[in-house]
Simulated assay, not measured.
Amino acid sequence: MSSLPDFDPRLVPVVGTDEQLPAVPAHAQTADALRARFAAPPRWEPEVLLEKKFMNRPPAHASVLIAVVLRQQPTVLLTERTAHLSTHSGQVAFPGGRADPEDATPAHTALREAQEEVGLAPEFVEVLGALPTYVTGSSFIITPVVALVRPDCVLQPNPYEVADLFEVPLDFLLNPANHRRHVFDLDGVHREWFSMPYQQGDKIHFIWGATAGMLRNFYRFMLA
């Protein structure tokens, strides 16, 4: 959608939500429960894997870190990208980015990028595993790496890449009543996506697109 001028996903109508689906229970969101879930993954099917292509560019591998911060009520760490970046500028995203040839695994990419973007040192992170790859309309093949993060970590966002850094309660993201569905049609372009707007004080963080799609898959994985 980046190729469409003046496109604002906030203005696209909501066609439905999924309040009829069960939320992931609180007892399944503890550190031990998350460790157990990734140690013995259930049989499940991801819901969103491939976006309709909207940008002609060579495929590129990347990783993001779905960082579950172990507060009394667990949260997920998210960023708002700065407006001048060449891809997905201004959008809500997980810490992460392109794989380097020196990265041994997708987890190494996610940890390296998280340290570069938000100053998250690897010693505060416990990697649990990964969800299936997610292919964006801009041709990024993304591996979502899920990890637990100690709450005493000290973060230092890179101002060149990160305009804002915030946390969203995990139980909000794993409750499908907060998952909104959108449909967009214009000049032969058809696209569907989820959004999960989260209000924090006077600001609404508009989580949508690839980030919301990977969170939806995380919900499916946790509910299976």
Rank of each mutant, 00 (worst) to 15 (best):
P74E: 05
L128N: 05
E102R: 14
K52L: 11
V118C: 12
W193S: 01
R181K: 15
P157G: 04
Y198M: 09
D202N: 15
Q200W: 10
N56T: 14
R180Y: 08
S138L: 14
P41W: 05
I66N: 02
A224M: 08
P144E: 04
D32L: 12
V145W: 02
L11H: 12
S195P: 04
D32F: 06
N178M: 07
V24M: 00
P13Y: 02
D187Q: 15
D103S: 03
R71I: 09
W44H: 03
H27W: 11
E192Y: 09
A60S: 10
V68Q: 00
N158P: 08
P5S: 10
G129V: 01
P159I: 13
Q115F: 02
R191C: 14
A114C: 01
R112S: 01
L173N: 00
L4M: 12
L174D: 05
P101C: 11
D164Y: 11
L165F: 15
P59Q: 09
D100Y: 11
E126I: 00
I204C: 08
G213C: 06
E167L: 09
R10Q: 12
F140A: 07
F140Q: 06
P59V: 13
P41K: 13
R180L: 13
Y134E: 05
D8F: 04
T143C: 10
G129N: 06
A40F: 04
